[in-house]
Design a binder for these strands. Sequence first.
DNA 1: GGTGGTCTGTGACTTAGTCACGTTCCCGTG
DNA 2: CACGGGAACGTGACTAAGTCACAGACCACC
Lengths: 220, 220
Amino acid sequence: MSDNWIERFPELAALPPQDRQYLTERATKVALPTGTTVFAPGVPAESFLLILSGTVRVQQVSPGGREIVLYRVTGGETCIMTTSCLLADENYAADGVTETDVEAVAVPKAAFEEAIAQSPGFRRLVFADYSRRISDLMHVVEEVAFERLDKRLAQRLLARAGDGTTVRVTHHDLATDLGSAREVVGRLLKELERRGWVALSRGSIELCAPEQLKALAEGS
Amino acid sequence: MSDNWIERFPELAALPPQDRQYLTERATKVALPTGTTVFAPGVPAESFLLILSGTVRVQQVSPGGREIVLYRVTGGETCIMTTSCLLADENYAADGVTETDVEAVAVPKAAFEEAIAQSPGFRRLVFADYSRRISDLMHVVEEVAFERLDKRLAQRLLARAGDGTTVRVTHHDLATDLGSAREVVGRLLKELERRGWVALSRGSIELCAPEQLKALAEGS
DNA sequence: GGTGGTCTGTGACTTAGTCACGTTCCCGTG
DNA sequence: CACGGGAACGTGACTAAGTCACAGACCACC
């Protein structure tokens, strides 16, 4: 397989040539269309996954049908859930779904363990991703337990807007981002619309007063 | 240092003699009295920590002063927070406090990195603990986001009681266990008392009807 | 021009968190 | 022994968030 993908991962690009070759010879590139389930509870992973482009949403689903996004994996990162399954035979109650078309590199279990054993750079990559996910999860706990929903909603709207000014998203999707319920998000959005800070239409939200939203998002 | 502590860690006990010796020569045993702060935000760790006995509570404190327990580290486990600081220079917004007197083994950073590089068993230990903490954190998210507080309270009461029937704990401590507020916990407890399932007194709670509590804790 | 599915709106209600107190109990010190 | 301060707990009034059971509204596709 071509080895240019390895440049996306600084820790791997810095490996000695024989380690790089070891990986590229055993890895296979995979293309996952939007909406693909990458992993799910009860389905043991059989490959280590490096994401090249696109994003994978990792979320938890409650018995009652409510959902919450735990974090997103994007280009240059690895998928801890599958990693843990490989390293510790741990089975998580979360599932991963591609939010966009995703290009990834799959490393078979045996090659993964060999790389872990042989390559300090590869280990650093894996440990760094573990740490990042723990950070992400702690942040989710903090938000869910302590922050007001209107503040978190403003944060999400701004994050999803990027540098643009309109967000294409449903109330339901925002609710799962926040771990809340659709009706609640709908009501909060309508309050924001009443204040003239957003304009609502089916499937998309226009940010009319980003500065006000920013103030709300950052306020104590 | 004496190396009998290593028996508490199956992955380490299984190491070849030279690896065991490498560790025991460089590790130092430390005794931490109840209430010691093991790590805190902004204080970089300089040693890898293996807990021999006792428990360390890892918790998050909100700006508004509310707290939530993320997980507890007990005998035979390692402290991921300090590990991450060593491996990834990550700084977390959590702090660790000993809940009991704690005996631990501290491995200096250099010896830790050497052990990671050399010993597959040591790596397994570290990875397994990472996975366990991710599991713990995901469980906290699930609970906080989706479960009713009375159910979670019943779970905590039963867990703290162990096989006994009285729990020595304040409403405030229960609230930080659950990431809730003291008044709320107090009200729920009084409702349980009204039903005759618990008896309340200052600083301790008597479980009068554990079966009922169990039903509440396990109910949908 | 129906028709089924997705998306959104609404009201009534319950649960949880906040705020500002007041009360009770314990324990050491004068 | 009184008493004073701190810790633990109680309370009421209020706000925020979640739940349930609907009812429209919009879209795409036959």
